[in-house]
Design a binder for these strands. Structure first.
Lengths: 114, 114
DNA sequence: GATGGACTTGAAGAAGTTTTCAATTGGCTA
DNA sequence: TAGCCAATTGAAAACTTCTTCAAGTCCATC
């Protein structure tokens, strides 16, 4: 019996639910990078980054290969970029929606009932 | 100063990172539903479902409207369906990748080096 | 205005995640 | 092979989220 798909999805989303991990995936969208470069692009301690990379590796979302004395990370699936794009669209929508709500509220101040 | 986008994305993914919440979004993909119907489609206590619905509401991912004595939930953005589709693609890829890995391992048993 | 059904809330303990730091591994070069 | 740099690991403390249960609100109907 396989893990139900909604459970697998939940685990997957939970894995993405950390700012450092999202940042790593954004940086890897354009191609593989050594840890050194990830470290340069994210404001975090090396050991903390390693912990977060381990979470992504265990989930199978990224792969790592040693090249001499450095380690290079890459996305396991190119679809990760699609997912991040979809997330951006939703967040943009939601923020726009909040903007409208705010505008309505402001308007209500001028046209209050009573 | 806005919340950085990667932080907003992480919060958003964390919000999706629970099996009941994923199931709710899947059920709402085809249109709004009353709590009663969500409850019928998810194996969870009413009060637990309410807690999870509250998480989705606070995050702005769903909206609720009271209709008489029942409460109806709906997705705030239609893009949520795209996101779930992208997640399904990635998971399918990853499982297929694992299948290949497994096949390679099995093959290695027959052609072992030495 | 009392009763019942539908849903939500508050709060407390259990369970899980994150951060941090010291210790460790692997590879390169003197 | 000693020393160094890059990255990882293990473990404990701090923090967050999840589950559960009792109590609460809101509406409809009697």
């Amino acid at each position: 019996m396989p893990v139900p798909l909604y459970q697998a999805k939940a685990d997957f989303f939970r894995t993405l639910g950390h700012p450092v991990r999202v940042r790593v995936l954004e940086l890897l969208q354009h191609g593989p990078l050594p840890v050194r470069d990830l470290l340069a692009g994210i404001d975090v301690e090396a050991s903390n980054l390693s912990q977060q990379l381990a979470v992504l590796r265990r989930a199978g979302i990224v792969t790592s290969t040693r090249e001499g004395s450095t380690v290079v990370y890459a996305l396991s699936s190119n679809d990760v970029a699609d997912l991040l794009r979809a997330a951006r669209r939703i967040l943009t929508d939601m923020i726009a929606g909040q903007g409208e709500l705010l505008a309505e509220l402001r308007e209500a101040e001028h046209t209050r009932p009573g």
